[in-house]
Simulated assay, not measured.
Amino acid sequence: MSRIIMFLGTTRDGRNGERVAKHLIKLLEEKNHSVNLFDPLKMPFELLRQPLHFMPDQSAAPQWLRDANAEIAAADGFVVVTPEYNCSLPPALVNMLDHFPPASFRHRPVGIACYSLGPFGGMRAAAFARPHLSELGLVSIPAQFTVPTVTQSYSADGQPQNERIETNAARLVTELTWYVDALKAARTAGVPN
Rank of each mutant, 00 (worst) to 15 (best):
L47Q: 14
Q144C: 08
M96I: 03
F7S: 04
E166T: 13
H107E: 12
F105T: 07
L27A: 08
F54N: 13
D76F: 04
F78N: 13
G121C: 08
P148W: 05
A103P: 00
A73M: 03
P131K: 13
R66Q: 11
L8I: 07
T149M: 10
S134Y: 02
K184D: 13
C87P: 00
V94N: 08
N95Q: 13
F105G: 10
W64Q: 06
N69T: 04
P40W: 10
L89S: 08
S34K: 13
A75N: 01
D57A: 12
P160F: 01
V79H: 07
T149L: 05
S134H: 09
P83H: 01
N86M: 06
G77K: 06
H107D: 15
Q58S: 12
I141S: 12
T10I: 05
N36A: 10
F105C: 10
E46K: 13
L97G: 07
L65I: 05
R106K: 15
E135Q: 12
E30R: 06
V35L: 03
P101E: 15
D39R: 02
E30P: 01
H107V: 00
P44M: 10
R19H: 02
K31E: 15
D13N: 13
R49G: 09
N16S: 12
F105H: 07
A156V: 10
P44S: 14
P101G: 14
T146S: 14
S59L: 09
L89R: 02
A129T: 13
F78V: 11
G122C: 11
V150Y: 04
P40A: 03
F54C: 07
T10N: 15
Y154Q: 01
R66Y: 00
G9K: 11
M1Q: 13
S140C: 14
E84K: 11
P56G: 09
I72V: 12
K42A: 15
R164I: 05
I5P: 00
V94C: 09
L136H: 08
T177N: 15
S34M: 07
Y179G: 00
R124Q: 15
P51M: 10
S59I: 03
Q63C: 01
F100Y: 11
Y85A: 13
M1H: 14
L93H: 05
V20Y: 01
S153N: 15
G122Y: 14
N86V: 04
A70G: 02
V191K: 05
D57I: 04
Q50D: 13
P40N: 01
M1W: 05
P56M: 04
E30L: 05
Y179W: 15
N193C: 07
D67W: 01
D157T: 11
C87W: 12
E29Y: 02
V191M: 12
Q50M: 15
A21M: 11
L93Q: 10
T177Q: 14
D13G: 10
M123E: 11
H53P: 02
E135R: 05
V180L: 06
P83Q: 07
A92Y: 07
F120M: 10
Q144W: 08
V180Y: 09
D67P: 02
P83M: 03
Q50S: 11
A92I: 00
R187I: 05
M43W: 10
I141R: 07
P44I: 09
T11G: 00
T188E: 13
F100M: 07
L52H: 06
L65D: 12
T151A: 15
V80T: 05
W64M: 02
P56L: 08
H33W: 00
P160C: 00
P51T: 12
F100P: 06
T167S: 10
G14R: 08
D39S: 09
